[in-house]
Amino acid sequence: MPSALDQTMTPESPITTIAHVIQLSVAPVFLLTGIGAMLGVMTSRLARIVDRARVLEGPKTNDSTSQEKAAEELVRLSRRARLISASIGLCTLTALLVSAVIAILFLGAFLTFDAAVLVAMLFVAAMLAFIVALLFFLREVFIAISGLRFGYR
Rank of each mutant, 00 (worst) to 15 (best):
V124A: 07
S85Y: 02
Y152G: 06
T17S: 08
F110L: 15
A103L: 15
V41G: 06
R45P: 00
L31A: 14
M38C: 10
D6K: 13
I49E: 00
A47I: 00
G36H: 10
P14I: 03
L96A: 12
S3L: 14
Q23K: 11
R149T: 09
T8A: 07
G89D: 06
R45C: 01
S146V: 03
V117G: 02
S3F: 13
A115I: 03
L93Q: 06
P14E: 09
R48H: 10
R45Q: 02
A116T: 15
L74T: 08
T43N: 10
P14K: 07
V26E: 08
F106V: 05
A53W: 00
A71C: 06
G34R: 05
E72K: 14
T65H: 11
A120P: 02
T112R: 12
T112K: 11
D51M: 04
A126M: 06
V119K: 08
V21C: 09
G40H: 09
I49K: 00
K60R: 15
D51V: 02
D6T: 14
L105A: 08
E57A: 14
R139P: 00
F142P: 00
L46Q: 05
I104A: 06
A125D: 03
D114R: 05
Q23L: 11
G36M: 06
A133S: 15
S85T: 14
A4P: 15
G151F: 04
A116Q: 12
L74E: 11
L96M: 12
I84V: 10
I35Y: 02
G151W: 03
A81P: 01
A4T: 15
M42T: 01
I35W: 01
L148G: 02
P11V: 14
L134G: 10
I143S: 01
G89Q: 04
V124K: 08
I104R: 10
I88S: 02
F142H: 15
A70E: 04
A144K: 02
R54M: 12
Q23Y: 06
A19K: 10
G147Y: 05
L122A: 10
A4Q: 15
L24H: 09
E12S: 10
S25R: 05
L39C: 04
S64T: 11
L134D: 03
T65V: 15
Q23I: 08
V117H: 07
Q23H: 12
R45F: 00
A115F: 06
P28L: 07
Q67H: 07
T10Q: 13
M1S: 12
D63S: 07
F113L: 06
A81M: 09
F130D: 04
L83D: 01
V132A: 14
R52N: 06
R45W: 00
S3N: 14
I35P: 05
D51T: 08
A133K: 04
L105D: 14
S64D: 12
T16E: 14
L56H: 05
S66P: 01
T65S: 09
A109C: 11
P2A: 14
I143E: 04
T33D: 07
P28T: 07
F113E: 03
T61C: 06
L148N: 04
T16S: 12
I18M: 13
A19L: 09
R52M: 03
S3C: 13
A70T: 09
G151K: 03
E57P: 00
I49G: 00
R48Q: 10
L138E: 01
F137K: 03
A126Q: 05
A109G: 15
S146G: 13
V98N: 08
G36T: 07
I88R: 02
V141H: 06
K69Y: 05
E140P: 00
